[in-house]
Computed example of a mutant assay.
Amino acid sequence: MQVDENATTDVIKRLRRAEGQIRGVISMLEEGRDCADVVTQLAAVSRALDRAGFKIIASGLQQCLSAEDGDDQSVNLERMEKLFMSLA
């Protein structure tokens, strides 16, 4: 599966944001921050990773659907991503 270049750029941005959030969680743990704050930040990291994964899945699905239809029909990638997110 080849991921669309625009989707790849977006996924990389999301993963870098998650990377920064993970560093923040590590710092919070090292500083002995409140458990609720740490869990809240972990939940944000989890959502960021889910969104990156769903973006990749949606891009791959778009390619599969386009190949099946045999024409240049454009599938709304953002709509598919929202549908995937509603299942999470």
Rank of each mutant, 00 (worst) to 15 (best):
M1G: 09
Q2V: 02
E5D: 13
E5F: 06
E5Y: 03
E5M: 07
T8Q: 15
T8E: 14
V11M: 14
I12W: 00
I12L: 10
I12A: 07
R14C: 01
L15S: 08
L15T: 00
R16K: 15
R16W: 03
R16C: 06
R17Q: 07
A18V: 08
A18D: 07
E19V: 01
G20W: 13
G20F: 13
Q21E: 13
Q21I: 00
I22A: 11
G24Y: 06
V25T: 13
I26G: 06
I26A: 11
S27P: 05
M28V: 08
L29D: 04
E30H: 09
E31R: 15
G32R: 15
G32D: 13
G32C: 13
C35H: 14
C35K: 11
C35V: 07
C35A: 12
A36K: 03
A36P: 01
D37P: 03
D37K: 12
V38N: 00
T40F: 11
L42N: 06
A43N: 07
A43F: 08
A44M: 01
V45S: 01
S46K: 14
R47N: 05
A48E: 04
L49F: 04
R51L: 08
R51A: 01
A52T: 02
K55V: 03
I56V: 15
I56M: 10
S59G: 02
S59D: 04
G60S: 11
G60H: 14
L61D: 07
L61E: 11
L61T: 00
C64G: 14
S66L: 09
A67H: 13
A67G: 10
E68F: 15
D69R: 15
G70W: 09
D72P: 03
D72R: 08
D72G: 10
V75K: 11
L77E: 09
R79L: 12
R79K: 14
M80C: 13
E81H: 07
K82N: 11
K82Q: 11
K82C: 06
L83G: 12
F84Y: 15
F84R: 08
M85Q: 10
L87P: 00
L87S: 06
L87I: 14
L87V: 10
A88Y: 07
